[in-house]
Design a protein around this nucleic acid. Sequence first.
DNA 1: TTGAAAGCGCTAACAG
DNA 2: CTGTTAGCGCTTTCAA
Lengths: 335, 335
Amino acid sequence: MGRITQKSLARMLGCDISTISRALRDDPRVTPATKARIRACADKLGYVPDPAAAALVSGRSRVVGIILPELRHIFYNELFEGFSRAALEHDLVAELFLTGFDPLTLEKIISRIRSQRPGGIILGYHQLSFPGLKERLKKEFPVVLIDQDPVEEYDSVSVDSAPAIAETANYLVRLGHRRIGFVADSYASPTRGTLFHAALKSLGVPDTQQLVVQKSGRSEEVGYQAGLELLSRPDRPTAVFCVNDLIAVGLMKAAFELNVPVPAALSIVGFDDLPLSDYLPVPLTTIRQPIQEIVRHSFRVLADRMRTPRGKREHLVLPSALVIRKSTTTVRSEP
Amino acid sequence: MGRITQKSLARMLGCDISTISRALRDDPRVTPATKARIRACADKLGYVPDPAAAALVSGRSRVVGIILPELRHIFYNELFEGFSRAALEHDLVAELFLTGFDPLTLEKIISRIRSQRPGGIILGYHQLSFPGLKERLKKEFPVVLIDQDPVEEYDSVSVDSAPAIAETANYLVRLGHRRIGFVADSYASPTRGTLFHAALKSLGVPDTQQLVVQKSGRSEEVGYQAGLELLSRPDRPTAVFCVNDLIAVGLMKAAFELNVPVPAALSIVGFDDLPLSDYLPVPLTTIRQPIQEIVRHSFRVLADRMRTPRGKREHLVLPSALVIRKSTTTVRSEP
DNA sequence: TTGAAAGCGCTAACAG
DNA sequence: CTGTTAGCGCTTTCAA
């Protein structure tokens, strides 16, 4: 008695365990007939492969490491939920490695990841915390980069936010805005700000660098504090672009508290298009990240690379889009 | 050349592999001196144990299965992030099993979990999707129940929301509310509603069962639709208790859209105290769940149970608390 | 196309 | 207290 193993299947079917192993892994050297017979029997008896044994002998597991700075930001949250579901479909296991916490050194996180012998790795944005991480990982595992600028020697699935950001700048300027703020938190890659200001500049908007706020902390709090700061200035902005939606939420609260009506006196644009954002009292104009597409494509690319480690690198670029809702409108003359 | 194994350590130190194994697992039968020597050498060479091998031979892995219906609700999100961090500290691996998706049968999920041979399981609320799950799991693994009513034969860490819910009812009634709505989504355990209505009844509030809305779908959408429904009724409520904060967000949007000022014409109470909730334009009055305490205690209980499988069951009960912010106020006379 | 045999890295009896 | 000895369940040579 005990659980069903390849050995027990072999005994029942009167063939060798290695044949079972091959049949189950769809090895072409096994006759379709025997294959079918073995499969049927395995299914009937509820055979479940032991991943530990498979990992031990083959040197790699069915684990896919998902490396993300944190989870509580809903963007990462949705990403990870997506990966969990995708893993389920591909019969893999998505394992989360959080980089955004203090007492964690590069060596520690590497050794933690290594000890799982993952079959592959999806590496989210991490530069601030762990420069050098991707180089180290690449030596041992197939790595797919997401949520960061593509790099030649890595497979990557990235989002080209340049057009949407330019469109946002353009849109705000068309609405008459000239004093346009920008708020970022510490997880944000600097790219968004750079692109946004370049776009503003090319539209002839006077330099708005003094309306930039960057803070570290919970995104909502960052947005709230930045809002209090920006909105109490004499040259307060008439529009603010937030590097993520949660910052926009905090900013909206600050505006509400200071009796600055949104969008009448302050237009707000976010970034991410969280499910929540459409349900704010003033639904948020924002740039949509194609989260599910990121998940789908990065998983597929990784699966390819796990199969053919030396295959040609893929660099997928997904579009993002400005979603106009109610938090933005034309500038009205000042009170 | 190759990676450091116990065998290679044994060769270098001139002792047997089993001594290495014992020293590394802190077996009391090894002399402190040799233990130290072995540890030092292992550290110096960067020895990393192979979890696959350990799991294979011992029959259980260092994986702790975390079973949750979904992740995108921030309550689960924070829970899982907490578990990931706690796992890191305990040198375990938190693995997420999502139950809230369609094409998943009880058998499938069981077999998936089983295949990982987790050392223990933390089981969140799941009754709606998978009755019978906990009974099946209990036969094979140490199980700790969270986010659900305690059951005698299981270790559990639960939250006693009764006092906070009674306090909420009492608070709303003191503010003068009599027509009090209640909105739930499909993940919610029925307990909250039952407790709330019992409390209202004992306060002499006329029956409010017709102001109850229960829907399935994304929480924000549920709240929004429920809001549209409730607020357009002739006997519309002056206060609504939402079974979670995201529902409250949706409800707030509906109120805003229908020009029902919050809290002046509609008081809203949520449940969870998400980080977000304090940053809504009208900061939400809500019942706080002690998420980090749930994580900490359930992990400790599980660790105990993994060590002593036959130990006495623990039933921890944590308090929740009403957090009063700005979304609730006294009833004003009707327009 | 299938079978035999070796061994992945580790743990856990059992001896000494 | 330490060493010897068997495997855990599976993959993967190598032979047949």
